[in-house]
């Protein structure tokens, strides 16, 4: 798509900023106890004020004016202003990214809510983990039967171009390690929940990551030693940036001294980054990212 074409539709969307994005919608049902109870059951919320009908959960603010079910999946009032142009530009997938809500007063049974929504803004084209897209922001205002504001919501969605349905699109969200002829046994071992380290067939020295030749005696003979998975943290870093899609940050990465004598880099699991310490005893665990893709993760050794 040329820049000129891109600018045309984006300019058209920007020209609509500040305008009503849907006709005002008044809730079909007033705030009511049966719907509050269904909500509490789904959320597991046991607040007695909600169950007794004294208050509605604030988080229900947005739901009273939601479109009801229609067999043809059409939506009351049509689609939000601007999104048709974003769709037409090829950014057809949608994911919500931000919600900000302000509750001006308690919501009670009997309140009849009216929703007004305006288009608040659209970002320039952004590259995201999901694909290239634009963030589109809408502002909702909710009023009661007296016309008084009871709450406001800012809702931001990412409209993005769905990735092509290729093998690449189906790849694991967690980056896969490169597997070489020398390291294949290590990854295959993990699939069988074994922590294997290459051991020289001549001098017995362990070396990791595995290479083709013993760095001590230059022997090409080797065998795989199954390790206990017990070790201690030799050193570590807490990775904040750069962030790769599919990984969880801040990400503690440690250099582990295995009790057999080898040293290996691995992720740490289930530990707050601030609690990682050099010398901390750890045990390996095997985490299946997907079928035939297992990573070793070291966790703090539990007492006893």
């Amino acid at each position: 798509m040329s820049n000129a074409a891109t600018n045309d539709w984006l300019t058209a969307v920007k020209a609509q900023i500040g305008r009503e994005a849907l006709p005002p919608q008044t809730a079909v049902d007033p705030v009511n106890l049966p719907m509050i109870r269904r909500w509490c059951e789904a959320m597991g919320d046991r607040n007695p004020l909600y169950a007794e009908g004294k208050l509605a959960p604030p988080a229900t603010l947005f739901m009273w004016t939601m479109s009801h079910f229609r067999p043809d999946l059409s939506r009351e009032g049509g689609s939000l202003l601007g999104l048709d142009l974003v769709d037409a530009a090829g950014f057809t997938s949608v994911v919500a990214t931000n919600v900000e809500e302000e509750y001006c007063r308690d919501l009670r049974c009997g309140d009849v809510i009216t929703q007004r929504v305006t288009l608040d803004g659209i970002s320039e084209e952004k590259k995201t983990g999901l694909g290239v897209g634009h963030f589109v922001t809408f502002r909702y205002e909710f009023t009661d039967q007296k016309g008084e504001v009871i709450g406001r919501t800012l809702f931001r969605v990412l409209k993005f171009r769905p990735p092509a349905k290729t093998a690449a699109a189906k790849k694991s969200p967690v980056p896969r390690p490169p597997v070489t002829r020398d390291s294949a046994f290590f990854w295959e071992g993990l699939n069988q929940r074994k922590l294997l380290v290459r051991q020289c067939g001549n001098c017995g020295r362990l070396h990791h990551p595995p290479g083709p030749m013993c760095p001590e005696c230059n022997s090409l003979e080797w065998r795989a030693l199954e390790c206990s998975g017990r070790g201690t943290i030799h050193s570590f870093v807490i990775v904040h940036q750069p962030q790769m899609p599919g990984l969880n940050y801040p990400l503690p990465v440690a250099l582990i001294d295995l009790e057999e004598g080898a040293r290996m880099v691995a992720n740490l699991g289930e530990i707050a980054p601030g609690k990682v310490r050099i010398g901390m005893p750890v045990d390996v665990d095997f985490v299946e990212i997907e079928k035939d893709f297992v990573l070793p993760v070291f966790r703090e050794r539990r007492a006893g």
């Binding site: 919320d45 046991r46 607040n47 007695p48 004020l49 604030p58 988080a59 994911v95 919500a96 990214t97 931000n98 919600v99 900000e100 809500e101 302000e102 509750y103 308690d106």
Partner: peptide
């Protein structure tokens, strides 16, 4: 759950 029934949420800002 933590605040108890008399806690009242006034606003929330979340990223997904």
């Amino acid at each position: 759950d933590w605040a108890g029934p008399a806690g009242r949420i006034r606003n929330v800002k979340i990223r997904l």
